[in-house]
Design a protein around this nucleic acid. Sequence first.
DNA 1: GTAGTGTTGTACTGGGCGGTACATTGCGGC
DNA 2: GCCGCAATGTACCGCCCAGTACAACACTAC
Lengths: 202, 202
Amino acid sequence: MHQAPKTRRGQERRNAIVKAAAKLMYERGVRGTSVEDVLDAADAGKSQLYHYFSSKDDLSAAVIDYQLTQVLGQQDQFRLDTWSGLRSWFDALIKGQESRAFRGCPVGSLAVEMSAMSEKLQARVAEAFLHWQDTLEQAFEAMRNRGLIDADALPAELAQTTLAAVQGGYLLSTAEQDLQPMVRSLKLAFAHLRSLAAKPSR
Amino acid sequence: MHQAPKTRRGQERRNAIVKAAAKLMYERGVRGTSVEDVLDAADAGKSQLYHYFSSKDDLSAAVIDYQLTQVLGQQDQFRLDTWSGLRSWFDALIKGQESRAFRGCPVGSLAVEMSAMSEKLQARVAEAFLHWQDTLEQAFEAMRNRGLIDADALPAELAQTTLAAVQGGYLLSTAEQDLQPMVRSLKLAFAHLRSLAAKPSR
DNA sequence: GTAGTGTTGTACTGGGCGGTACATTGCGGC
DNA sequence: GCCGCAATGTACCGCCCAGTACAACACTAC
């Protein structure tokens, strides 16, 4: 029981369950979503869930991965190692937050709740954020290599502060149900990155 | 039923319940904390809870207020309208996050979960954040009035971006179980504020 | 078709949880 | 000392929910 699907059909059912879980957990929170809600939404039965997952925690872990994949997938549509690409990405994040009714970051909101649930989930959350951070770091490193940002800048540090600005923006925007904090936070993050550009040699 | 306490003793019991609830909800999340857990911790009975609160949601709302009060209380120990006071406050936030085992912001983590629970709680969360933001705004306005920061700076905007940096730092630090993101995020926020100081006239 | 493995339907259970009912006790005012 | 209200103890209820048991079905290979 609760093993990886071995047929295409099984794979599709598993994905449908994760997708439905991701949607509901995003909207109502992890603990606010019962497995039966998920199964109803995915039009699946209980035996299917426990065929592929060992527990709700296990499903939740899959949901983090799924949401991270979604976020990184959208992120890949932008050339983050260019100024215009970065700006477009920020704009897209803001648009997304608006269109999803100020519900916050699909990864970040899960992260807060799951970090307090179990050691295992906490570890998965950490992994997810480090991965996300890493994709940003690569973009900044590329910019540095191409001379777009100063050679002394630390891509890892920039990735961390940028992600913090994104999450801080999301959180305030969700808490206050207002787009403005997110707009301002990202604007500031962008300006900071921009300030590291084209340093007049050393 | 569920009305304000009318005696000193009642007041104390009510406070004890809220305090215990705040502690547990912070550690385990709101939905991860049962009212019975709270009552055990507060050494109280169920009739006491429902004497002062109409529901768990009602108690949760009181917990937001309590946590905000705690945070603002600690914040009041610093002169936020001075550079050294600001820096000390940031340092204290970092120390707090460390000493509380990377569990995140006592207000922010509640906010994420509660925003998705009900309209009423969402409204209370918004109120809390706006209040917090306001205290920062007052500090920045005082600085501006005293010429510590540029006359063109907008205190409201600074308050929002500063709070976003705080929350973003908390979130990443909690997700990654590492102090560094918070340290860097606050360092950056401080540098940004600092950059608005002593503009060479217009 | 038949065997074997992957998949799915259904019915059930045991525990936990929010909330209620109601009786009882503590306490201040007169 | 007794009345009245605030405060508290206790037992209980109904519901929901994660997880299980087990039987039935689907597909592939031969």
